[in-house]
Design a protein around this nucleic acid. Structure first.
Lengths: 200, 200, 200, 200
DNA sequence: TATGAATGAGTCTTCATTCAT
DNA sequence: CATGAATGAAGACTCATTCAT
């Protein structure tokens, strides 16, 4: 009985390994340049076996996106424990800056995925990465609202601020990546922190 | 003799057509999803003939980047005729906003190309799109310097401002693209204009 | 002890279900387009379990043929209870016509299986469906013989008549299937009945 | 110039070779058991090159059907030169009987194709073979009509007779194939000839 | 026995690149 | 220069069969 449980556990571990590997490799190599074999190798799973867990390559891409969503939720979940919404946002920016080396090499996982998938015209996954970004946007807007920054502009104010914040993150990630320079993250991150402090 | 000139002219037209087609199609479909046949068809050039102008697919990608550089130079060249550097920068932002529909559908040509090519690990073209962005950065920094905004921080001030400006552009393009919403360009564009006005 | 009996019963039920499912699905989809998973699903048996009852896919095909043989035997068994051999044959034809909708959609189970398996060159099952047809042929010949229609030509006469009858059935099934028209069965069935009546 | 013509000719010969090979191999092995490599090898064309002429395997199947249609047209064309329609039909039956060895080994090309393709549920090619058979049916009906055999039943009579004739052919082919016995063709062919003679 | 999972050989298809003329 | 055709190396995906428990 323990054995059968073990097997199930190991199996779901495999699925988990595949998802993690997909998230990593797809981020590093992009969707089109990544072969199933790449992901399988990284997850240490025989190629033929991948299809037991994911019926198509696109399902693996979808799974990678779920993985990114999970990471995002975990991060915002941790930040939610901070008492002050402004501090939460600032901690978020600091977390981004800490990722500067990865960003400089491969860009923002979700942002680059959104850019690549957005080129599709067949309606498959083309806006899925956008959904992850929207989730981040929503969380950020909630913080701004909690800061009482819906402003005179009504609720739209918080949404705009969230947009500015996330666009700032995407912009600095892309620039750091294009210039292969992690310091871009530091400099622009500092600017975002300053901006957050200035809001009232 | 006239014939040979004609031929040369026609040939260079073909080359031109291929470059333009490459720029367009690669922007819309991405590098990996675009086949040589796609570009050839769009340029109305027989596939086999492409190789007389570009020895590899990568050379066509390179050519597309040159095309984007040329567009950029043409734009900044026009802007240079404005007397006031701040007006030049604001006109640049307005030009970006005018492209909002394209940006919402396909993102910034250079930015998305930088993201895709940046995934390469084989050292081919992986930073070439970054060079185009750097060119934009340099032009912008020149404007800020001319505005006397090198600040107390010396020349770095202008560079930082340029970085913020271009990152702002990339950020809003990516967000507009991810959310498939051109209005993102309008809103964030307005913010950038306001920011440019506030600088002194 | 009851448990072990139960198990055996359940097991043989599973085997039975697999055979029935194989007969049905192989008829509808053909051998090559049918996967083991298709049959397992239809029989509501886990895929991995199939191999306890049938060691290879071909054994399942064989089992489907047995199933068809059983159906045939059951049918002729019922017909054998009719007193008049001519009536038996006419009832057979009527039974065929009753199946017209299935025939128009999927053809004769045995005939189409014979056609598909006959393409094999590896000597596996390639004439097995033919054996089922031969069984039908034998039964029909017996009826003709009983009708006293061995004729001057001796026993061969009955065999020829049987061949004509079964060929008639296969021909009308194939035509109904190719034209997707059940009425073909009705029309040609009527002709066969008329022919049977005319024999003396 | 001659060279360029040669090339085009050779190219279209290749296409022709592929069609002929497809017709032959698909008849002998069936659609599902035949790989593109099989056809390519038989046509002496590199596998990758096949796709220059036919975009998918299904297009090759379609091409094989065209080939069969062409054979049929050529045959009926030759028969049309006979003055008497009854003689045309009898010559057709004799032509069938001459093919008895092929029929006994592989069945009727169109009939077996119709049986196999008819199993498809995806709407691709599933009734295409039926169209070839219908063409034969139409030609035969024309002959019967010319014989003045529309009967009291009007034009339907000829159609029914044509159906009986072609069903007879399909039936005897299938039986010859299932029993692996060419003599079936001879016997049933004789019966069909006799039947044709008896019509008035 | 029972069963979810594993395996790897095989098949279709795509495409950059090259070739012959 | 021009161009239709040729080539072969991948890559995604399927599936019968086997395995571990």
């Amino acid at each position: 009985m323990t054995n059968s449980v073990d097997r199930r556990v190991r199996a779901s571990q495999k699925r988990q390994r595949l998802m993690a590997a997909a998230a990593r490799v797809l981020h590093e190599q992009g969707v089109e340049r990544t072969t199933l074999a790449d992901i399988a190798r990284e997850a240490d799973v025989p190629v033929g076996n991948v299809y037991y867990y994911f019926k198509t390559k696109d399902e693996l891409v979808q799974a990678a996106l779920s993985e990114h969503t999970a990471h995002l939720d975990e991060l915002t979940g941790r930040l939610d424990e901070l008492p002050d919404p402004r501090e939460r946002l600032k901690a978020l920016v600091r977390a981004w800056v800490e990722q500067r080396d990865v960003a400089a090499r491969y860009g923002c996982p979700t942002g680059t995925l959104a850019a690549e998938l957005g080129k599709r015209t067949d309606g498959t996954l083309d806006t899925e990465a956008g959904a992850v970004i929207r989730r981040l946007l929503d969380w950020a807007a909630r913080q701004f609202r909690e800061m009482g920054l819906s402003g005179q502009g009504g609720a739209a104010g918080a949404d705009d601020l969230a947009l500015t914040l996330v666009a700032g993150y995407q912009g600095m990630s892309l620039m750091a990546n294009a210039l292969r320079d992690p310091e871009v993250m530091t400099r622009e991150g500092a600017r975002l922190l300053h901006w957050l402090d200035s809001l009232q």
